[in-house]
Amino acid sequence: MRTFTLSAITLLLFVFGAAAQNLNNPKDANGFYIVKWDCATGTWAASNDIEVDQTFTFAVDVTGTPFENWLKATPTAAGATRALAINKWTNYGDVSGGTNRLKQIKGNIFGATWNIKQIASTMDVTAATGIDSVVFIYGQVFGFEFTATNPGAGWWMWPAEIPGGTAIDPGTGAIFKTLPYTGTKTSTEFYSDDYDGGLFFSNNTPEKGYTLPCSVVTAISDITKPESPVISHEYYNVQGARLSKEPETGLFIHRTIKADGTSESVKVIKSMK
């Protein structure tokens, strides 16, 4: 009886252990994977301190997983190189399937430059950018092969140890989540083909909000343009509803609108005097 019980437990552990992909990324205090790569230091950021419309370098580390050996194995396609990609979606809907490929950063770490809002397809952007909205990102890392002329010589490839379509789950359901939305970290719009090699990276189709890892996405106009004067103020509650005037107490959002059409939003907390 004891032998049967131990065998049954072992089988259950095997089944449930195989029910999710694991990564070698560090985890944050809430158990989510840290996926933000610090290109300046060449290591993981301290946290995923990003909002949904903020550009960052996403990365995964498959060291110690079946994909480590899969990457080392001989490619199926002649003259091909093996790499990783990630099929992904959010709690607000899908993002573009053309933004799946990841490029090797170093060793078993692969990544890409992302802006989640910009790569949205069916994702409800309005809901995802509501004040305090948090976007959860789910996905599956899979393998692919490419040659000098074919960005998809092999696709949707999996090690024998991982059933095809197995999702990543660090124990939180989602791979990672964004910061609650404030609208204060909006990044410049960009496309994959703005950078050398980016068009091939996105399967020869320009993709918005996606390109090679550690690409510097900065608009020259943002650097050279002088500060524009503020011309009006708006106030919103934390649910995103506009208020008729500035509250005297409590938590609210203060939005300043400038003459050049840009705006900035900050959270304000006022206590009773």
Rank of each mutant, 00 (worst) to 15 (best):
L12Q: 13
G209I: 01
G130K: 01
G17M: 06
G42E: 00
L6S: 11
S232F: 10
T76C: 04
D260N: 15
I86F: 03
T147F: 05
S244N: 10
N87V: 08
G165S: 09
C39H: 05
I253E: 00
D28N: 15
T65E: 03
T57V: 04
W114V: 09
Y138N: 06
G198E: 02
A174V: 07
G111I: 08
L199F: 03
K72C: 09
Y210T: 02
D169M: 14
A59L: 07
A241G: 04
K258W: 02
G139W: 01
P229E: 11
T55F: 03
W155V: 12
I34L: 07
I109Q: 10
P206L: 01
P163F: 10
A46V: 10
F136Q: 05
D53Y: 07
A120W: 01
V52K: 00
A78F: 09
L12A: 14
T129G: 01
L23K: 08
W89K: 08
A120S: 12
K88G: 08
A174F: 07
F16I: 13
E248A: 14
R82A: 04
T188M: 11
P180I: 03
I86L: 11
G111E: 04
D194P: 07
W114C: 06
T205D: 02
K106W: 04
A77P: 11
G250F: 01
F136E: 11
E145G: 02
Y210K: 00
A219K: 13
F110L: 09
Q104I: 13
A40D: 08
D169L: 09
T178K: 07
R82P: 06
Y195K: 15
N48C: 05
F144Y: 14
F4S: 12
I257S: 04
